[in-house]
Design a protein around this nucleic acid. Structure first.
Lengths: 354, 354
DNA sequence: CTGTTAGCGCGTTCAT
DNA sequence: ATGAACGCGCTAACAG
């Protein structure tokens, strides 16, 4: 039923080894024989058995890309960029040569699922793994993750972190590309302060994630730099990284302190929810309240007014992570690179009234 | 270096066969021995070799989900839903039991890459494959795709189509869940007609995709139903499914016919671009021009004014496709189901002036 | 340049 | 309930 390499060999009247050599192209084969073999392959609709091949050669062509939320363009952009560097262009024949199989795994932000996916990829002896997005700061999880990554690296899997801080205990990874979330947060709040804002609400992400903490720390640094503090906890509401959460948190923020003149959101999606809450309250943006986001996702320029935000080079970082995973690019010094953020000032922020 | 099942067996003082039985749990093993084996597994940090196991058992735990654009929530939502049905919840141990490895492959909308991915998945002897999104209508591609899917099905891979019309030549697939793009398009344009619009511009997607054609056909049906025709080609501009394309096409539409009172876009993302073009021209939405989209992506309710659009149950369809792929749900009669669309009337459409 | 031989790590018969 | 032996389909030496 299923056609094997031996069948091809028989039909081409050569040995299995020769067929293997033709298919892998890593060895000299006479043009005539190669022709015969390829014809037999086509005649028989033969497709290499990946597992047998991987088992024998002790290598795999699978590369995993882990994301927290596949429906969020933040991850989609990084994953797509990484995949395009890994997958190769394809030769148009649909026959597939030595390409890697770059696959995206959706963890849903759950540490358990993340660990499970890593085990599954370890089972497949994945050639490389790219982890995207912020990490959870639970100690037990950190330990488990560090151990698992060490074992993966150990087994020859190249591990790359993209948009995630380096592991606490040092490397064990090929490279870590960390976003400058703290610097971005600082920049953004400084911008608001320079416009004259003093009462600034902050809609933060989930408490336990590094991304949340770093962005919030940048914000508070800027606030303290202007001598503003004390109200920090009252003017901060935590939620998840989605629109609904942004809406609810903003409602709560306005209840706690109706006099705020600006709302900084954990990311652009959350900012969308914040803006909706503000409008539903009958307030105008930016005349009554300024709103700012983070990430600069594609839609941010399209909302009205366009969103002031911090741009993260998601595509570039994803692509670089992909190249790093493939060994097509040298790791940064120390295996760690801080990817810079850029302030994008648009219409959603302005000087406060009066 | 790498620890194998034999190592575990040696440490647990049992035969390799027993270890295998414990791990797969498909066979009676004495509780005491099982304990010993599991302890040895933990002690040695043993992880099953997926390829060896797959090779021996002639089964694979890989399930592929193909998407056109991973950065587009349209696909992300479907893929995430499918993956959640396939991957299993994980048991929290990170140890991974009999889970399938659900992976997402990004084709970038390229037929070649799509075919290449299918070959790669075929190589891995994937347990199932879910194809999402509209198909390209090129005959050569259709033939190649049908042949490839037939071969996959033949090799035991369960093939499910999600948001894609059934193959021309009949099944060979477990199930095809097709969106009612035509009905949705008709509904939407009827809504505009009922508001009093007569000169309606259409920003269509890429010419060769089924999704584009079906939505456009629905639109034209509605137009003809109101006795409106003739201007069809002049009032239709094709582009890709992205914001930029929506912007450019709308500029062109307004150049060709400044008197249009409504613009229907191929999808929500394109509608965003259309709206930007209209605003940049100094026109108001919906007072001067109404705008409508398709899909009802999460952001559509957040733009201002909120977007009138056609809701597709992306999550539900993706989840169902996942269950179908796993054999957890029975296929619809004939293997084909038409997934209904729902009109969502919001602020971006209103009666034309005058 | 090509054929022969020997595993890769595991599941699965058979025995026992 | 457990162990021994074979083979899954392929690649990697080693000859020739």
């Amino acid at each position: 039923m299923t056609v094997t390499l031996a069948d091809v060999a028989a039909r081409a009247r050569v040995s299995p080894a020769t067929v293997s050599r033709v298919l892998n192209g890593n060895y000299p084969v006479a043009a005539a024989t190669r022709e015969r073999v390829l014809r037999a392959v086509d005649d028989l609709d033969y497709v290499l058995n990946g597992q047998a091949s991987a088992l024998a050669a002790a290598t795999s062509d699978l590369v995993g890309i882990l994301v927290n939320d596949i429906a969020d363009p933040f991850f989609g952009i990084m994953a797509g960029a990484a995949q395009s560097e890994i997958g190769g262009p394809g030769d148009g024949s649909g026959r597939a040569g030595g390409e890697k199989l770059a696959v995206v795994c959706n963890t849903g932000g759950s540490p358990d699922r993340e660990l499970t996916y890593l085990t599954l990829l370890q089972r497949q002896r994945a050639a490389a793994v790219v982890l995207t997005g912020g990490a959870v700061e639970d100690p037990a999880y950190q330990t488990a993750m560090a151990a698992k990554l060490a074992r993966l690296a150990d087994a020859g899997t190249r591990v790359v972190l993209c948009g995630r801080p380096p592991l606490p205990d040092g490397a064990a990874v090929v490279a870590a590309l960390a976003f400058d979330n703290q610097g971005g947060g600082r920049m953004l709040t400084k911008h608001l302060l320079s416009l004259g804002h003093r009462r600034i609400g902050y809609v933060a992400g989930p408490l336990e994630r590094t991304t949340t903490r770093h962005r919030l720390e940048g914000h508070r640094e800027a606030m303290r730099g202007s001598g503003l503090c004390g109200d920090e906890d009252r003017l901060t509401v935590h939620g998840s990284y989605d629109r609904r959460s942004g809406y609810d948190a903003t409602v709560e923020l306005l209840r706690r302190e109706p006099e705020i003149t600006a709302v900084v959101a954990a990311n652009d999606t959350v900012a969308l929810g914040a803006a909706a809450a503000i409008r539903d309250r009958g307030l105008r943006i930016p005349e009554d309240i300024s709103v700012a986001g983070f990430d600069d996702l594609p839609f941010s320029v399209d909302v009205v007014p366009a969103l002031t935000t911090v741009r993260l080079p998601l595509f570039e970082a994803g692509a670089r992570a992909g190249r790093l995973a493939m060994g097509k690019e040298n790791p940064p010094p120390g295996g760690i690179a801080l990817v810079p953020a850029e302030l994008m000032v648009r219409g959603s922020t302005a000087a406060p009234r009066g």
